[in-house]
Write a protein that binds this DNA or RNA. Structure first.
Length: 492
RNA sequence: GCUCCCAUCGUCUAGGGGUCAGGACACAUGAUUUUCAAUCAUGCAGCAGGAGUUCAAUUCUCCUUGGGAGCGCCA
């Protein structure tokens, strides 16, 4: 049987971490099984669905490289997603409503939302599950006509069996069973003629020939309702896999109050697409040897649905941060440079690196490569190469002006000014030799030479390897900065 | 309230009737280094509780507790 899966978000906001995880598991399963991955936009909530949200989802999916394999029409380069509202216009859902109505599996209900709410309230008071009481299930023709004469509009409800139970095998949960008596006659089609989630989802999953429905565990209680619809239409339900939820640090389902939940925010912070994917894959899935890093195609190769965990997982930002560093270190200098430029332009921060020489920038980034955890760290790590020398006061106090070091620091800088013009800047080794020789001649420790030079040319105590830094900066600039520093702090 | 689901280090997890309960993040210490990182080494830390089955339960069963989700003309 061909494997066909889908990700079916509703376009009512940003694509959040939980949604991405669901999309990812569908994607991984499809790729692993050489199946088809479909994107379906569930935009039947006319009040909340927005076009901009749809675009955000599509762009986020593209950034994450969770490409889908199919769509309406014949676009060759890029498939459009399926949209339920477009399918509604084609009469797809109405057709099956008519069948269910005709076969007696569904009925028109004329109760107003207020009346239904009253029923639920009563049920709650009686400590019963709040549900529709079946008021309109067996209306006579005359009653129906009467309601219609009153100008009431009808919704279509599913006629739920009062006894028995629905059972199914879930790949993640195992055997699941629900009593029919607890289910009510849920709405299939709203008064405005738009199908509800539980109905549209079934129709589309069937017509799109989905072999597996992989979704969040919050949908598990919808599953029995949906299976009833499948059965009423004489259809075989797909195989279900309900993924556990992702929780915030307080144990509640991950939501906005836990901080960043939108994928876009992670992109903005400078997380790498593949690192985020790798991290999310590990939330609720693992290999037998608990492998952590999956570079290249190894996620797809190793993935399997039956190794998904049924218990919820807490989102851990510090592990994601570590993993991002791992991914950055795993990439070449060129890749990081390109990624950084992409990030700068995506975040519209071109001003940040305005006037910075690209060749120098690339060299500077490569000096700090293994230190980078987020793309957004980069400017702060290398900006001193490009900006006017500005001094970190504690660095100056500690290295240049402290009582014990002041004289030697001054001497070191003065010697540099004298000697450096004739120094070979061609290799870090040569520069290191120069500094060590200087230390020896002056009779001071290496660090009393290294540190003042570092502060003099960068203004800080932290930074790349000193001699690589000098090489990249170049003789003229190094001299200029040392002169400037000496003038500022050691002028008599 | 009702229904469903879940339970191994702080976190992600492996394991599964007999294990020194394994790995990873975080944290701590040490090594290395001109600094910060990175790297390497070491350490810290866990089977929620109670019954039952069994020669043997962290593992199987039940209960308790704790946590989560669902109960819309939302998806």
């Amino acid at each position: 049987m061909a494997i066909r899966v889908r990700f079916a978000p509703s376009p009512t906001g940003d694509l959040h971490i939980g949604g991405v995880r669901t999309a990812l598991f569908n994607y991984l399963y499809a790729k692993k099984e050489k199946g088809t991955f479909v994107l379906r936009i569930e935009d039947t909530d006319e009040a909340r669905s927005t076009e901009s949200s749809t675009q955000i989802i599509i762009n986020a999916m593209k950034w994450l490289k969770l490409g889908w394999d199919e769509g309406p029409g014949n676009e060759l380069s890029q498939y459009a997603p399926y949209y339920q509202m477009k399918r509604k216009e084609q009469g797809i859902y109405q057709k099956y409503i008519d069948i269910l109505l005709e076969k007696g599996y569904a009925y028109k209900c004329y109760c107003t939302p207020e009346e239904v709410e009253k029923m639920r309230e009563q049920a709650r008071l009686a400590k019963q599950p709040p549900k529709y009481n079946g008021h309109c299930a067996n209306l006579t023709k005359e009653q129906r006509e009467q309601y219609e004469k009153e100008g009431r509009t009808a919704v279509i409800r599913f006629k739920m069996p009062k006894e028995g139970k629905i059972e199914f095998e879930d790949i993640v949960r195992g055997h699941v069973s629900f009593e029919n008596a607890l289910l009510d006659d849920f709405v299939l089609m709203k008064a405005n003629g738009v199908p509800t989630y539980n109905f549209a989802c079934v129709i589309d999953d069937y017509l799109m020939e989905m072999s597996h429905v992989i979704r969040g565990d919050d949908h598990i209680s919808n599953t029995p309702r949906q299976i009833h619809v499948y059965k009423a239409l004489g259809w075989e339900p797909p195989t279900f896999a309900h993924l556990s939820m992702i929780l915030g640090s307080d144990g509640a389902r991950l939501s906005k109050r836990h901080g960043h939940t939108s994928v876009l925010e992670y992109r903005k912070e400078g997380y790498l697409q593949d690192a985020l994917i790798n991290y999310l894959a590990l939330l609720g899935w693992s290999t037998q040897d608990s492998q952590q890093l999956f570079f290249g195609n190894s996620l797809i190769e190793n993935f399997s649905l039956d190794r998904c965990n049924s218990s919820p997982a807490t989102f851990d930002p510090s592990k994601l941060l570590w993993m991002n560093g791992e991914y950055i270190r795993n990439k070449s200098d060129q890749e990081i440079f390109d990624l950084f430029l992409d990030w700068i332009s995506w975040t519209k921060q071109d001003d940040l690196i305005k006037g910075w020489d690209r060749a120098l920038l690339k060299k500077a980034i490569s000096l700090e490569h293994e230190k980078i955890k987020l793309l957004k760290d980069i400017p702060g790590l290398v900006d001193f190469f490009f900006k006017e020398l500005s001094f970190d006061q504690t660095a100056v106090d500690k290295i240049l002006l402290s009582d014990t070091k002041k004289d030697s620091a001054k001497q070191v800088l003065q010697e540099c000014i004298i000697r450096l013009p004739n120094q070979d800047f061609g290799s870090p080794e040569a520069l290191e030799m120069f500094a060590r020789n200087l230390a020896q001649e002056l009779g001071v420790s290496n660090s009393k030479v290294f540190h003042p030079i570092r502060v003099a040319i960068s203004g800080r105590t932290q930074g790349p390897s000193l001699f690589h830094m000098m090489e990249v900066m170049g003789k003229d600039e190094v001299l200029k900065r040392i002169q400037q520093t000496a003038d500022k702090y050691f002028k008599n």
